[in-house]
Design a protein around this nucleic acid. Structure first.
Lengths: 338, 338
DNA sequence: TTGTAAGCGTTATCAC
DNA sequence: GTGATAACGCTTACAA
């Protein structure tokens, strides 16, 4: 910058003003400065700016696992939205490890991100961790906009994005009951993950309201991956009265369940219907195409980014909440009960 | 930092030395400084450090599309490796758009990343773009370690990671021929992507060497997504002599092809065998489980990160190249020709 | 072993 | 309309 100023015989302040589009510089000077900037391929130094107190244009994104296909979609929503406003993404993969999360918190603080999108919804138990809560509060105090995905904390100065899935879940329950399914098994999400436990409760309520409550014995512990689907299907098919339909914790678990069922000689959907959750890209192309509940994942990412680059709430601010609706999608993995 | 120094009656240099583990500070002083650091929850300001000339611990990762399941695996390899050395990831999704790529280059420069991993192998044509080449050269000059995935450029001061797939491709060709397939169709990767064009050539060479060259008419233009697989399979099955086996550009295209074939009443693998490429996580769990060529994607990511945080090559340095082998994986999407 | 001072690139404040 | 200068938080040479 000094070099540019010197070569033009103007002061650095003049150059700075031109770069930042500040008023009070003659058109002629602006032109000359810009010309030299182009010629020298000058790029402003973000570090120096930040040091001077300007907010960065960086948003940190914390997710548990980029290889779970839910998250690339979410991240893509974030990124596409970020590009428009010149923001960029600092990606943090916790791998479900609290230690990693805490390390990333330090890193984010050190790097002075403007916003923080925290998708630990599926690992909601962390949000009751006092240390995590303290750090989140501190981010708010430090003027970084925190956005939670899938978990609302009204007592914290953070925003949130989330999904209303009650209606879609009711649709799904009605769909299964109308197809004649009476013994429905559930491969449940892991314990302690608030949102998804709530999802489980909503399923149970939906079936109960329709008049066909789910048998507690037909709910097996599960997780959000393929292996959990395999194990869950195996466990359910060993029950004395086998289910005619299985609701998996998510699409991944549904795929696992289907592949286990097929391997054991059952036909999906003729012998057993399988229902997923998320509607990841593969659900459409899987054989059989998966009946599932579609989350507006991409849009959730977009909404999260908008909240993350909004002016910070401050220490005692009250978060905004954006809620989008999930929708039931019937495909070929569900059919009339045998 | 000044605050800590003042509260202890020492100088900032002392605090700095303690923070950076520099020698020459008495154990007692170190202890006292550390105590206050913990109490005040002091985090060093990365911006100020970088401004002072210290390299950042940030590695930019440029990929075409995070929703293509090849890339999360690659990114995970990068991230897991990065964590060990305290580096963090700046994610850049070009969405196959050259304009976005160039914007990201500016951003990366402005943010002073220490390294840059550029996975535009599947969009190799950019690498013959003069502007891109110039920018890459400039990164090298600016002491950022550039690593290309899947594309070697010996004339540029950049490193690269890549895959040797000749052997795996020969294995795959032998596999198909031994199963009795004589009419093999190929859904080819898009034009202009050097690595993958080479892959196509390797397939042709392999079949020719075994004595069953592939008919040019059986090669249809394709791409790396599900839709291309659908369209490719449709085009191939319309040929006068229909193929008994289809080699798709990648796993995604293979899934598309299988779903199109199934929808058209063909059984995979009984009527048509399908071969993929990449071995993404879904290949295992798909119905039928996909026969494919496994890329060491995760390991490629790890290797790329190690190169990216290695000392920069400098303007006239000569890049290192890490090559890993692909392997043929036979599953259930291929069977004896009908 | 510890302190002092200069400087990294930028922007804000004030003076001209 | 433009220029000089201080300050942001840190590291490093050098002095004590």
């Amino acid at each position: 910058m000094a070099e540019i100023a010197r070569s033009l015989g103007v002061s650095v302040q003049t150059v700075s003003a031109v770069v930042n589009g500040k008023p009070g510089i003659s058109v002629e000077t602006q032109r000359r400065v810009r010309e030299v900037i182009d010629r020298l391929e000058y790029h402003p130094n973000q570090q120096a700016r930040t040091l001077r107190g300007i907010r960065t244009k960086t948003v940190a994104v914390i997710i548990p696992s980029i290889t779970n296909p839910y998250f690339p979609e979410f991240v893509k929503g974030i990124e596409d939205e970020a590009r428009g406003s010149g923001h960029s993404i600092f990606l943090c993969n916790t791998d479900h490890d609290l230690g990693h999360l805490l390390e990333y918190f330090s890193l984010i603080k050190t790097n002075k991100a403007a916003g923080l999108i925290c998708s630990i919804g599926i690992a909601g138990e962390w949000l009751v961790n006092l240390e995590v809560e303290k750090r989140l509060r501190r981010f708010a105090r430090d003027q970084v906009s925190v956005v939670l995905n899938g978990r609302f904390r009204e007592d914290l100065p953070v925003s949130a994005v989330g999904v209303t899935d009650a209606e879609a879940i009711h649709d799904a329950a009605r769909h299964l009951i109308e197809l004649g399914h009476r013994r429905v098994g559930i491969i449940s999400p892991p314990k302690g993950f608030a949102v998804t436990q709530e999802r489980l409760a909503t399923f149970r309520r939906a079936f109960a309201e329709i008049g066909h409550p789910i048998d507690d014995a037909m709910i097996v512990a599960g997780d959000f991956d393929i292996e959990a689907g395999v194990a869950g299907a195996r466990a359910l098919m060993k029950k004395r009265k086998r289910p005619t339909a299985i609701i998996a914790a998510n699409d991944l678990a549904a795929f696992g369940a289907i592949s286990e069922l097929t391997a054991s000689g059952y036909s999906v959907p003729n012998d057993v219907s399988v229902l997923g959750f998320d509607d990841i890209a593969f659900a459409k192309v899987y054989q059989p195409a998966l009946t599932t509940i579609a989350q507006p994942t991409y849009e959730l990412g977009q909404a999260a980014l908008r909240l993350a680059i909004a002016p910070p709430l401050g220490e005692n601010g009250v978060g905004k909440v954006v809620t989008l609706a999930a929708t039931f999608v019937a495909r070929s993995s569900t059919a009339a009960a045998p």
